[in-house]
């Protein structure tokens, strides 16, 4: 870990302004991802702005009948919120499928969205990684590399990492919108769909956020009802990242929405795949995973995604 300076922010606009002004500044929320990365010198901020005191730790109702989830609400509190459990059960299920109880107590809404990939080569600084050190090459794409956990779609020749969040997959299927404040004090609303970016030639650039921009909340539109489910397929029963996860909302008429985790650099959803839901899992995946480019080790994710969805659809 490189040495760094530290300050506590008490105002969101100022925090963003400071982040843009101080060289090498980063925000820290729960610290459950950032501190690990700092210890390994994968992230090397020179200055930390602690955003825990910004008062962004509430879940509030919006005028549109939805919910505004504060950026600093812990994953535990968010999952347990009565309104979330009643109206957005897919979100609660996704949250409790993530990490462990202890981690969820510290992890926050914004931090969870911004957690970095779990690609093992990203995590080993002796290995080449375009995401960590642009231009170095991708350790996971070389002969004999271990790529079982990595992405199958939306990836590029420079990076095949996945975004590991469970929460984000549920937010995507719920059409959530990220609210921010920029260093100039302006506020922005970024649909989750546009929030995470595909790697292309710049896998180091992961989100639509500009330098210093602070997430203040995530807004859920009014509840859409339907049957909501989240299934996370993994090698052990808890405390493991998804091989594939499926967030599903299904209406009585058979229409609905589906998003995947564990397969792409962002929560993976396509409107044309949603439209196929009445026609079953195979039809959905034909659209949703069209253009997939798995490695030899992770082709199974295509079958796994289809079978996971099929068994969820068969459940009723």
């Amino acid at each position: 870990m490189k040495s760094f300076s530290y300050e506590r922010a008490s105002n969101a606009g100022q925090a963003a302004a400071r982040a843009a002004e101080v060289p090498g500044a980063m925000f820290v929320a729960g610290g459950t991802n950032l501190l690990d990365l700092m210890k390994l010198e994968i992230e090397t901020p020179r200055h930390l702005i602690d955003v825990n005191g910004l008062g962004l730790d509430k879940v509030e109702e919006t005028e549109e009948g939805g919910l505004r989830l504060g950026a600093l609400v812990s994953n535990t509190d968010l999952a347990a919120d009565d309104r979330v459990r009643r109206d957005y059960p897919v979100l609660t299920r996704a949250l409790v499928a993530g990490a462990s109880g202890q981690l969820r107590n510290k992890a926050t809404t914004a931090g969870n969205l911004l957690q970095r990939t779990r690609c093992p080569y990203f995590y080993d600084t002796a290995m080449p990684c375009n995401k960590r050190s642009p231009g170095e090459g991708c350790g996971a794409l070389s002969e004999g590399a271990f790529s079982r956990q990595l992405g199958i779609i939306g990836t590029s020749d420079s990076c095949i990492a996945t975004h590991p969040s469970d929460m984000a997959v549920a937010l995507r299927v719920l059409d959530a919108v990220v609210e921010t404040v920029t260093p100039s004090g302006a506020t922005r609303r970024i649909p989750l769909e546009e929030f995470h970016q595909l790697p292309g030639d710049t896998p180091e650039k992961e989100t639509a956020l500009m330098d210093g921009e602070l997430i203040t909340s995530v807004v859920l539109p009014a509840p859409v009802g339907g049957k909501q489910a989240y299934y996370k397929a993994r090698d052990r029963a808890s405390y493991a990242f998804a091989l594939v996860s499926v967030a599903l909302i299904r209406q009585p008429d058979g229409s609905g929405r589906v998003a995947l985790g564990g397969v792409a650099p962002k929560p993976w959803r396509r409107p044309e795949a949603d439209a196929e839901l009445p026609n079953g899992a195979r039809a959905v995946m034909a659209r949703l995973l069209d253009g997939a480019r798995p490695t030899e080790e992770n082709t199974f994710k295509i079958t796994l995604a289809e079978r996971t969805l099929a068994s969820m659809l068969a459940e009723e």
Binding site: S142, E143, A145
Partner: peptide, 13 residues
């Protein structure tokens, strides 16, 4: 998990 190209265990945590 063995990286057969480089010769190390990649999932080392």
């Amino acid at each position: 998990a063995l990286d057969q190209g480089r010769g190390f265990f990649a999932n080392h945590d």
